[in-house]
Nucleic acid binder design. Structure first.
Length: 561
RNA sequence: GCGCCUGUAGCUCAGUUGGAUAGAGCAACUGCCUUCUAAGCAGUGGGCCAGGGGUUCGAAUCCCUUCAGGCGCGCCA
């Protein structure tokens, strides 16, 4: 619907010899201002040195097709308001019904390759709610962009090298030794009776003890008298792999799937970190100073240059990140999207500097920041500390309120707004939750069709063409609902362009908010076969849109509830 | 001290990238199940868009400033 109007306006303006840039088309808040409205005449006023109203008149006079519009009015300071004819609305509705995805979506990606990296939780513990939010947003965004014609790859970056996993291994090792020593199983060194020293910044959750037990089951007493450094590789690998398995399981149960899992360790092993630094050096963005190696990120707007190799010869954490992003670029993606916790926002400039230093435009890396999730329990904030092992996991919440509700919760907010989740409320919400409102509309429609089939099997969906109905029978309320359905392509396109899946969520709530009252007021399946056909068609259109939208969000569209 | 994010109804949040008279959902109160599902419907109340200045035909939206909250500012990861 919006597409048709846009094409028309572009034609008209070029007919008037005006090269219009981006024509704004909007849905007026006030229905008396028509179905669509454009301020384009006002925007052009300065450039053309004519009054907005005169320009609006010129545009209006050039639009000839009266079958499409009931009225075109010039209002206010120069808005042009369009109201579509019922005939056009119905014809569009039929296209929606038969066209499916082709009608609902728009191919704005044209096969461009996008990689979305998200979650990438350190394999040092279970995922918390913040990770869940990232997972929900990333997966929905991937669905959205891939429906919009992009070729999307979803990647999880595994931080399996470096300090964090080492610390996990160390923590597990300490618990492992303790476990054996406490049970008198240490035949080697009596001095350890006091226990193996637990690392200062070690991980302390219950899961660490669990890992220690599993490690003991696997390796017995073999390592009990050793120093951590001697056996670190075995312990670290064992621990983080277990954690990674857990993360994978949680994600799978959450309904989030990845195409690729990139290991940081592998990047080191392939010598890609050094290659990346050499590459940047070759491009003139690396220099040596004070015994360290620096990246000239200030060249691209960062606050200060960043060290990549410390004067003790070790890489900083930043170095493998450079290599990782270089690798992404070398793999030929047209656009990279990173979804990070908002606490990492300080790294955006330096990462974009890397992208530019490697010869790519700044905006070929888009970083979406997902704000932290703060937890409340019955209105009181819950303090969370990963170190102390006190935090609410995604698993707990997901098991309590279900993956659909959890995802919906995360997708009803802009990703960069702070999110408060009250565990008690979220649990209690189980039957008064927005997600059910939307899903229920879908399930209801399904049972209407079941009823229709029961009444008259030969005229049920599937056995006849649902688009065969008389659109003149629609009342005002029905036309309003149909118009709302016809807005889906625009909402979809704008959500994809803005990379903001939450727009779909809000739209779906509005759709359900129109359908439930309608359902209550009007019986769909009646003795009047013609009216029934028309209303079933409307239901089908609503169902089509709900299904598609929920699909983007990664939320199920149940047939029954 | 510097930078980023946020500030909209009692609460949680939208607000179509600068559009016309500011929107939902919870919570509160009042009604509605002999019907294609009451996880629903109908109704009521609720606002200095944190404050101030500016930009223009037009500002919750852009700029400046003040205030409040969060986060980040290492040759830590």
């Amino acid at each position: 619907m919006e597409r048709r109007l846009r094409d028309m306006l572009v034609d008209v303006l070029s007919g008037l010899g005006i090269s219009a840039g981006n024509i704004e088309i909007e849905v007026p808040k006030d229905a008396s201002h028509g179905d669509f409205s454009t301020p384009v005449a006002m925007v052009l006023s300065k450039q053309l040195k004519k009054s907005p109203k005169m320009i609006a008149e010129d545009i209006k006079n050039r639009i000839s097709d009266s079958n499409i519009f009931d009225s075109i009015e010039i209002a206010g300071p120069g808005f042009i308001n369009f109201r579509f004819s019922k005939k056009f609305i119905v014809s569009q509705m039929k296209e929606l019904m038969s066209g499916g995805d082709r009608f609902l979506t728009e191919n704005i990606g044209r096969g461009k390759r996008i990689q979305i990296e998200f979650v990438s939780a350190n394999p040092t513990g279970p995922m918390h709610l913040g990770h869940g939010r990232g997972a929900a947003v990333g997966a929905a965004l991937a669905n959205l962009l891939s429906a919009a014609g992009y070729s999307v790859e979803k990647e999880f970056y595994i931080n399996d090298a470096g300090r964090q996993v080492k610390m996990l291994g160390h923590s597990v090792f300490a618990k492992y030794v303790d476990e054996l020593v406490n049970k008198g199983h240490s035949p080697y060194d009596p001095s350890w009776k006091t226990g193996y020293p637990f690392p200062e910044d070690g991980y302390r959750g219950d899961y660490v003890e669990e890992l220690a037990k599993e490690f003991k089951d696997e390796y017995g007493e073999r390592f009990v008298a050793r120093e951590f450094d001697e056996v670190s590789e075995t312990v670290i690998d064992f621990a983080y792999r277990k954690m990674l398995d857990l993360i994978k399981k949680d994600l799978a149960d959450f309904g989030v799937h990845f195409d690729t899992w990139q290991s940081e360790k592998e990047i080191h092993e392939q010598n890609e970190v050094q290659q990346a630094i050499d590459d940047l050096r070759g491009r003139g963005f690396i220099y040596d100073n004070d015994g360290a190696v620096w990246f000239k990120s200030t060249e691209f707007g960062d606050d200060k240059d960043r060290v990549v190799v410390k004067n003790d010869g070790d890489y900083t954490y930043f170095a493998p990140d450079i290599a990782y992003h270089r690798k992404k670029i070398l793999r030929g993606f047209d656009e990279l999207i990173d979804i990070w916790g908002a606490d990492h926002h300080g790294y955006v400039p330096r990462m974009q500097a890397v992208i530019q230093a490697l010869g790519h435009p700044k905006d070929s890396l888009k970083v979406i920041l997902v704000q932290m999730v703060s937890l409340l329990k019955a209105g009181r904030p819950v303090q969370m500390s990963k170190r102390a092992g006190e935090f609410i996991t995604l698993r707990e919440v997901m098991d309590d309120i279900g993956p659909d509700t959890t995802k919906f919760l995360f997708l009803t907010r802009r990703s960069d707004s702070h999110l408060e989740v009250d565990i008690e409320v979220a649990k209690a919400q189980s039957s008064e939750n927005p997600v059910y409102y939307v899903q229920y509309a879908h399930a209801r429609i399904n049972s209407i069709f079941a009823k229709a089939t029961e009444n008259s099997p030969q005229s049920s969906a599937g056995s006849r063409d649902l688009t065969d109905f008389n659109g003149e029978l629609f009342n005002d309320e029905e036309v309003k609902i149909i118009k709302k359905m016809l807005l889906y392509p625009m909402v979809f396109k704008n959500a994809a362009l803005a990379r903001e899946p939450h727009r779909i969520t809000f739209y779906l709530q509005e759709v359900a908010g129109m359908f439930h009252p309608y359902y209550h007021r009007h019986k769909v399946v009646t003795e009047d076969t013609e009216l029934t056909k028309a209303r079933l068609a409307l239901c089908y259109a609503v169902k089509t849109v709900l299904r598609h939208g929920l699909g983007i969000l990664g939320v199920t569209a149940p047939e029954k509830m």
